[in-house]
Amino acid sequence: MNSVYDVQQLLKKFGTIVYIGERMLDLEIMESELKELYFHHFISIEELQLGLAILRNEMKKEEKKREG
């Protein structure tokens, strides 16, 4: 995984499509869904960590956009 799109594709494999319309909310829900997949042993710890890192990095970018 290298991008938010890749995280979305991973979630899609498990039947989860996230689109609220507000970027930050979408990212937060994707984060929650990743954690649930890991909790239920559908994804590995590596996939969880990488996905969370990608999402959190994107959240930081969004916060900077809002500030600037």
Results as ranks from 00 to 15, higher is better:
1 M>H: 06
2 N>E: 10
2 N>M: 04
3 S>R: 01
4 V>T: 12
4 V>F: 06
5 Y>E: 12
5 Y>T: 09
6 D>F: 14
7 V>Q: 00
9 Q>Y: 10
10 L>T: 04
11 L>R: 11
12 K>F: 02
12 K>S: 04
14 F>A: 09
15 G>P: 08
16 T>P: 00
18 V>K: 05
20 I>Q: 04
20 I>S: 04
20 I>A: 04
20 I>T: 10
21 G>D: 05
22 E>S: 14
22 E>V: 13
22 E>I: 09
24 M>W: 07
24 M>E: 13
24 M>F: 11
25 L>T: 05
25 L>C: 03
26 D>K: 03
27 L>S: 02
27 L>P: 00
28 E>N: 14
28 E>V: 11
29 I>R: 01
32 S>F: 05
32 S>K: 15
34 L>I: 05
35 K>F: 06
35 K>I: 03
35 K>A: 02
37 L>W: 01
37 L>A: 05
39 F>V: 06
39 F>L: 15
39 F>R: 14
40 H>S: 12
42 F>N: 13
43 I>F: 00
43 I>Y: 02
44 S>A: 13
44 S>F: 13
46 E>C: 04
46 E>G: 03
46 E>Q: 10
47 E>P: 00
49 Q>N: 15
49 Q>P: 00
50 L>Q: 09
50 L>A: 08
50 L>S: 10
52 L>Q: 06
53 A>D: 10
53 A>L: 10
54 I>Y: 02
54 I>W: 02
56 R>L: 14
57 N>I: 08
58 E>R: 08
59 M>H: 02
61 K>W: 12
63 E>P: 04
63 E>C: 11
64 K>Q: 07
66 R>F: 08
67 E>A: 15
67 E>S: 14
67 E>Q: 13
68 G>Y: 09
